[in-house]
Design a protein around this nucleic acid. Sequence first.
DNA 1: TTGTATGCGTTATCAC
DNA 2: GTGATAACGCATACAA
Lengths: 340, 340
Amino acid sequence: MSQRPNAYDVAKLAGVSQTTVSRVLNNFPHVRPTTKEKVLEAIEKLGFEPDEIARSLVKKKTNTIGLIVGNLANPFYSETAQAILNEASKVDYDVIMMEGDSNNISLSEVIGKLINRRVEGVVVASVKRNDDELTKVLTEKSIPVIFFNRTLDHAVNTNYIVVDNLKGSKLAMEHLIQSGHKKIAYITGWQGYSTFNDRFLGYKQALAENNLAYDGNLVFEVNPKGSALDFSMDLLRNNPDVTAFFASTDSIALEILEAASRCNKRVPEDVSVIGFDNINISSNPYVKLTTVSQRKEEMSVLALTNLLKLINKEVETPVQITLEPELIVRGTTTAKDRNL
Amino acid sequence: MSQRPNAYDVAKLAGVSQTTVSRVLNNFPHVRPTTKEKVLEAIEKLGFEPDEIARSLVKKKTNTIGLIVGNLANPFYSETAQAILNEASKVDYDVIMMEGDSNNISLSEVIGKLINRRVEGVVVASVKRNDDELTKVLTEKSIPVIFFNRTLDHAVNTNYIVVDNLKGSKLAMEHLIQSGHKKIAYITGWQGYSTFNDRFLGYKQALAENNLAYDGNLVFEVNPKGSALDFSMDLLRNNPDVTAFFASTDSIALEILEAASRCNKRVPEDVSVIGFDNINISSNPYVKLTTVSQRKEEMSVLALTNLLKLINKEVETPVQITLEPELIVRGTTTAKDRNL
DNA sequence: TTGTATGCGTTATCAC
DNA sequence: GTGATAACGCATACAA
């Protein structure tokens, strides 16, 4: 009896068939109250609870989704994961979480594993712009996959929820330009991600639209050999006419803030800094970073609700949603023209 | 054929029995190379991959663990979750993640759900000191549960991995006291968690051991009505003889830093601040918070490896490990006596 | 209203 | 070496 009891054990104890046990378990209407009572008693006595694995097998439904994130230690991912977890629990879905940026297994393989675990759908929070293997897998496989935050370059038939990153960059840039900044440095993440590609485009477009010259010396892509911190310190020391930094993520912005502090530059008096993502720490009064909001919560909720709709075929595919970004002005930028 | 193929489809195509398909799938030794070839071809052709749910049912093994965290938006949890996820994937375990601090479902219920999903073990990263319902569930249920970071008060038979929080507090306090601080404020989280209980104990013991009086006015427990920020500002304005703050978490420490900045106090010249947890942001050069390290990675690895040992009955129960905390001196405290 | 038989997609135990 | 056949723990069609 140390084993977990099953529905047959309950049936035997209650003096009914296993089918009847299943019936009371699933609240079927036409069960005689007295039998129901007996079964309930037996369930209680044995501490029986149905095995969800067996249930999944026969019902061909697992009530589980997969969530693939880039790196949980990155606040953006953990904060969105938190929101998605929360939404999922509301509709009684479990989530199997995996990291996609792993070095020894490709995103396609991770998705494959999830599919074999019979998840009903997958949210992918980080995908490279080009992934031919993945594109192939997506057409072959049967379950819905929704990209979140980042998407594939040629996403004709893929589902995604993103913010308008290009527009977000423009918002940030216009905020700086309106405050009188002319020399604006830009630090980007890896251009292989659509987010950074689009944000960079926005940076360049904003410059062009405001008749400011693009200067490659003011632009830097973080890489294993070069940090945003070092680049910023260099720039602050050698290019005193640079008065503002646009960071493609809040995390990068934090490094710039440190660079400023090390170079004895006051923020925002000497140099303005603006980020992108609006991770939680940015609103911390100690940091008070001006940034562009990705609207994490909204995006997360939309990702989950739309994935469920896709699972239940309640929506036409592909689902492609682009949210409006939002400028959040806090303490690391001056907004001269706004203080008139 | 739009349905997912199963082992019978493969068998039919290869002209063998389904049993044989299973054999090549599981790399059984005595399969004739030519048959194996045929089967592999059929598998390839159909794009067949075994259904892990069915496999789990018959093998009574899911290769899945449950991970219950407090709140993923809290860096400590996301960073440890990341480490655990990583360790799990190394040994090919999947993890179903759930939040335990939810308001409409108790921790016991969450664990129950996980058990019904047939996870093989559970890591619980946040538990209250007293939870009678849970204690009862733990004795009834059959799978190993390991507490991580926090544990129950009367944990005679429970498995846990924690750091020595009391000692950690003493390390922090001695660091401050050796630097000449006499009036040290303390801000704690909810005392219903063992972490905060132990840390508070450490604070008081350190005072006593150094012949410093305990002053209730310098101690504050964050609550819905009162923030660390407000309390700190009050103190900084009205008690100028308070020269140091010991925060029971790094997140609280960040608020204190802001309070200092708002009150025009320099850190560490005017006031020292020390935290607890060593979350990633603390090492950011912009923050450079002195803190006590929880040794997240170590704890995470230990939690997972020991959970697996418990699952495989390779270790005697209970597993109870207390790690040594580590003082990490960065820029928010002065260490006068160390600079001799 | 209840029970019997069957099947979900595998692995395990026998035979041959 | 290989193939029937019986589990695993449930839900469901069909009978009664």
